[in-house]
């Protein structure tokens, strides 16, 4: 019996009787982090970090699963299970499983760039390393995020009569942008769309300072007050009438996808900010080299290029081709 199988509902550990980040409701799920394509509601029992469980409760309500359990090193069925920091977003973890059939580390989504919201990625060697491949193409080399924030601040200074509307996903990216702005010396209030409020509040409650945040929900008659201000919202809000309340807005978008110009243009972005919470190509390939697993499994993203790289390095690798991860969301 293999330590890990690829099933209809997602990755499954037969010796432990549980799924990891299942795509469909299952009896028992281990969840790496709170992004919607990994953490779904409706499982029988969920094990995850305390923060991921809190985030799921915020997103789906307290009744998101039949039973919940905070991750600690433990034995489930015939395997030992442990959770390790992934450096992706608040609460994110890799999952390590070992048993008679060998060992596996499932990265979930991970990043090796410092992020004050979470503990840094911890390399956990195993026989099999399951890596994400969101930015698994050699064109992806993320720049220093502080330089990207510098671009935003320079644009605000050069166009003080316009509002800067920054698209950022609600979990992780929004708080990351806020923290980077604070690091860069932006002490003014930052306005946030209502959809970001609860997760920002939760970060603050977890001891992550975000400074003066205010709701961007003032009536239209006061449009001019947003001139020169920075407003954060989920990208979906940019299509809504919400965007109409701001004066001649500069549409910005904080995402690793912004490295590719066509992506930025398709979204109508005027100021692309390449800020990612995933590994870029150099970090992804470096991680595989460092962990030196007997086998690398590649999931959601650009599997083909990572597999090709493994071939060139004479490493055993296979694509998982899991269906259902939204590899372009929350990146």
């Amino acid at each position: 019996m293999a330590i890990l199988e690829n099933t209809y509902a997602g990755l499954f550990c037969p010796a432990g009787g549980f799924h990891i980040d299942p795509l469909r409701p299952v009896d028992r799920a281990l969840i790496t982090h709170g992004h919607a394509d990994h953490a779904r509601a409706g499982h029988g029992a969920v094990m995850a970090t305390a923060q991921t469980l809190d985030i799921m409760a915020i997103r789906y309500g307290e009744a998101f699963a039949g039973m919940r359990q905070v991750a600690t090193p433990t034995r489930i069925g015939d395997v030992d299970v442990s959770f390790h920091p992934a450096g992706h977003v608040l609460g994110s973890a890799q999952i390590h499983i070992s048993g008679r059939a060998g060992s596996v580390t499932i990265s979930g989504d991970y990043s090796r760039t410092a992020n004050p919201a979470c503990a840094p990625f911890q390399p956990v060697p195993a026989d099999i390393f399951v890596t994400e491949a969101t930015f698994g193409l050699p064109v992806f080399r993320h720049p220093d995020p502080l330089d990207e924030i510098g671009k935003l601040l320079a644009s605000v200074a050069a166009q003080p009569e316009r509002a800067h509307l920054v698209g950022a996903y609600a979990l992780g990216k929004a708080q990351r942008v806020i923290m980077l702005l604070r690091d860069a010396g932006w002490d003014a209030p930052i306005y946030i769309h209502g959809a970001l409020q609860r997760l920002c509040d939760y970060h603050i409650a977890q001891g992550i300072p975000l400074g003066d945040l205010r709701p961007a929900t003032i009536d239209r008659s006061t449009k001019a007050q947003f001139a020169g201000q920075i407003i954060l919202g989920p990208p979906s809000a940019f299509a809504a009438t919400w965007a109409q309340r701001f004066p001649d807005p500069v549409i910005c978008f904080a995402s690793g996808w912004m490295q590719v110009r066509a992506r930025a243009r398709q979204r109508g972005v005027e100021l692309p900010l390449v800020i990612s919470d995933h590994v870029d190509w150099p970090d992804l390939t470096r991680t595989i080299t460092e962990l030196d697993p007997a086998e690398t499994w590649v999931t959601h993203g650009r599997e083909d290029a990572v597999i090709r790289w493994c071939d060139l390095q004479q490493r055993a690798a296979r694509p998982l081709r899991l269906v259902g991860y939204d590899d372009e969301a929350e990146a």
């Binding site: 650009r302 083909d304 090709r308």
Partner: peptide, 12 residues
């Protein structure tokens, strides 16, 4: 092959 995959994605 890596270049071809990348070019396909980037488009320019």
């Amino acid at each position: 092959e890596l270049f071809a995959l990348s070019y396909d994605f980037v488009g320019d």
